[in-house]
Write a protein that binds this DNA or RNA. Structure first.
Lengths: 203, 203
DNA sequence: TCTTCGAGACGAGACGGATCGTCTCGAAGA
DNA sequence: TCTTCGAGACGATCCGTCTCGTCTCGAAGA
């Protein structure tokens, strides 16, 4: 991935146009042919680039795909700065989870995101890098919204916010990855409502 | 997979010893070399079998691996008939989730199960078959235990048991797949406790 | 300021190796 | 006699490396 450059020399000479063309081609191709049939030669051909230019800068197919995601998230609007905070925690969470679902259901993102998950599952190094660059910051946004609610007394005082995030997003992502059923807005609402209230009856 | 045989002809002549050898070899090899480097020729060599014998009966690498799991689950002790029900719901759930964690952390199962998840993620047909043969029955066991608790008034009356199962196991599996942190017994306890009580404060 | 020159990155593609999935063979067995 | 079996040859594909000749850029020298 980009960050694995050798210390000095490099860096300046790199052709930015080629880099962008490669990442765009990788992202397009994984949608079209699927992750299994995605190959370097195809990416190079689509990008109008020599294979060596890819091998020079990225160590693996997964790293290319990962950088493609980084590129998206760093670009226009891809990275939001905060989650909505209207004061109504349940409504806000439902909105955010519905948005997540919409993204997962979007055919433009479905295959690429599955591919990214596959790489992460099989490569601990990539998983660590993902956690640092994408997963971590996103999780922090979620925790910020929850922390705000916690201060307002809407969440249990001793609540572990990491567990809370897992409880809200884990079911969603797991159902999506395992194809355990359709991801509908109603399902998102159900998760939020049940997670907030708990499985036990409230008197 | 086995169920994709052509209607008649086949079936009788099939060499059961070869079938078992192939599935065992696939399961061993995926542990040793990882999913990415698992290949048909290797499985055939390890099983002492011609490649064609594999291609004759299975449509893909994933299908072989899937059948290997089916073989395990149908064998001794692989399939349990019910979850523990001592009357103490929280303790029972913690025990079950701890057991799940132990299995996921077991190096014998880690790689093969990641591989299976990868196949499911990228192949809807395999996902449907998995849901029918393995996922569905296991989910039913979990729902049975929850239903028992619901009848005892320990769970909300209007609780959707599918959502409840997702809420308990989703976070666990998601953290495991995404390598979002260590799966410890304490984490399992935390999930159970938080899911049961909910994120909101209880007075 | 203008020219020269070396260092890399670049597009293109040849190359050997690995694995794919198909195909063919003779042996074994039902 | 008919199908599966183990074994392995086969062409195709993709791998990752390597070698071309071209280009861009910054430093050195006039």
């Amino acid at each position: 991935m980009t960050t694995q450059r050798k210390p000095s020399s490099h860096t300046t000479r790199r052709n930015e146009a080629s880099r962008r063309a490669i990442l765009a081609a990788a992202f397009e191709l994984v949608q079209e042919v699927g992750y299994a049939k995605l190959n370097i030669e195809g990416i190079a051909a689509r990008a109008g680039v020599g294979k060596q230019t890819i091998y020079r800068w990225w160590p693996s197919k997964g790293a290319v795909l990962f950088d493609a995601f980084l590129m998206l998230s760093e670009q226009p609007d891809g990275g939001e700065t905060a989650l909505p905070d209207t004061g109504d925690l349940e409504a806000d969470l439902k909105a955010v989870l519905r948005a997540t679902i919409e993204e997962l259901n979007d055919p433009r993102y479905d295959e690429p995101m599955r591919a990214l998950n596959t790489e992460i599952t099989h490569d601990p190094a990539l998983a660590a890098f993902y956690a640092e660059r994408l997963g971590g910051p996103m999780r922090e946004l979620k925790k910020q919204r929850l922390r705000s609610a916690q201060r307002a007394g809407q969440l249990a005082e001793d609540l572990d916010l990491d567990v809370a995030v897992d409880l809200l997003w884990g079911p969603l992502l797991n159902r999506w990855l395992q194809r355990g059923g359709a991801l509908t807005p109603g399902y998102a609402d159900s998760i939020v409502k049940t997670a907030l209230n708990g499985l036990r009856p409230r008197r």
